[in-house]
């Protein structure tokens, strides 16, 4: 967690003086009445990347646009849309970049296989160090 550390220079650079003076959108920082829906919305927000600050999810961002994206997600969840459908809608517009959850497209197969491959390779290497037990 060099979080913040030393830098954070990117974050405050723009938004400080160039913020909208309008109040945040209705659902940007207001929860949905139904806790189950709110939980779904929050879970999705934590996996959508903020377009303005780029290093954060929209759930952790102070940027206006992140607020509008939170509002969009809550509105659509309230209308009964599934989180994955909303994710797809965003990916259609911004590409895979906008989702912190890597897709299951072939380009990501090595990524998803990595944990298994790493453990398998480790077992193969470690096996030599063991004697067979009788």
């Amino acid at each position: 967690m060099r979080a913040l550390v030393l830098a954070l220079l990117l974050v405050p650079a723009a938004p400080a003086l160039a913020d909208s003076r309008m109040a945040a959108a209705a659902y940007a920082d207001t929860q949905l009445a139904d806790p189950a829906q709110e939980a779904k919305a929050t879970a999705l927000m934590h996996t959508i990347r903020c377009l303005v600050c780029q290093g954060q999810s929209i759930a952790d961002s102070d940027a206006d646009m992140a607020g509008d994206m939170r509002a969009l997600i809550r509105r659509r969840i309230a209308a009964g849309e599934e989180p994955e459908a909303i994710r797809r809608w965003l990916i259609e517009r911004y590409g895979d970049w906008v989702s912190y959850a890597p897709s299951t497209k072939p380009v990501n197969w090595p990524l998803w296989a990595a944990p298994l491959l790493l453990v398998a390779a480790g077992v193969l290497i470690a096996r030599r160090r063991f004697r067979r037990r009788r």
Binding site: M22, A25, A26, A28, L51, V52, D64, M65, D68, M69, A71, L72, L90, E92, R93, Y94
Partner: peptide, 14 residues
């Protein structure tokens, strides 16, 4: 566009 709704529909990020 008060809540960036249309902006997002265009895939615009700022």
């Amino acid at each position: 566009d008060h809540d960036s709704r249309v902006q997002m529909a265009f895939g615009s990020s700022g």
